[in-house]
């Protein structure tokens, strides 16, 4: 285990992200509304040692009840529209909605029209747009960091 820890220490945080923003933390709740799983892989990768988003105070949390951001992937399928609204309604205000990936943004959507409600815009008010198929961990990190409210002086 010490070998692993030593090795991890050497993995450089290569992402071109700010050293340390003076911003406050954000709690993120992710909902997969019908993605192909690539966006999930990249979102998970933001926690990998190369990016390590937690050092910016960004955390994926288990419940919408204590989340600031609802991060949604996938074209919203008809079966996920209602669970998605339930998650949104469970969030405290103020809250932000982020559309992660081209499917959630309504471009590049594939599927039968009867199975898909439409882009995330059609279901919830979208504040943050992160394009890409899928967006790279770096793009995800940069977009969320930009949305982090600055620390009050």
């Amino acid at each position: 285990m010490f070998v692993l820890l030593r090795h991890l220490q050497r993995v450089r945080r290569e992402a071109a992200l700010p050293k340390r923003s003076g911003a406050r933390s954000l709690a993120i709740r992710h909902v997969d509304a019908g993605s192909c799983n690539a966006c999930e892989h990249e979102l998970t990768a933001t926690a990998a040692p190369q990016y390590d988003l937690q050092r910016f105070g960004l955390d994926i949390v288990a419940s919408p009840r204590h989340a600031d951001v609802l991060l949604v992937t996938g074209p919203v399928t008809s079966r996920m529209a209602s669970p998605l609204r339930v998650a949104y309604d469970a969030m405290p205000e103020p809250r932000l909605v982020a559309a992660l990936g081209d499917c959630a943004l309504g471009c590049g959507v594939l599927g039968a029209s009867t199975e898909i409600v439409g882009s995330l815009d059609a279901v919830l008010p979208v504040d943050i747009r992160i394009p890409g198929c899928p967006p790279t961990p770096q793009a995800i990190a940069a977009a969320i960091l930009a949305a982090t409210p600055p620390r009050r002086l």
């Binding site: 019908g34 996938g74 399928t77 079966r79 594939l110 199975e115 898909i116």
Partner: peptide
Amino acid sequence: LFYKHRGLERA
């Protein structure tokens, strides 16, 4: 499962 059914085969 099938919450993510997008009807891709049909499409």
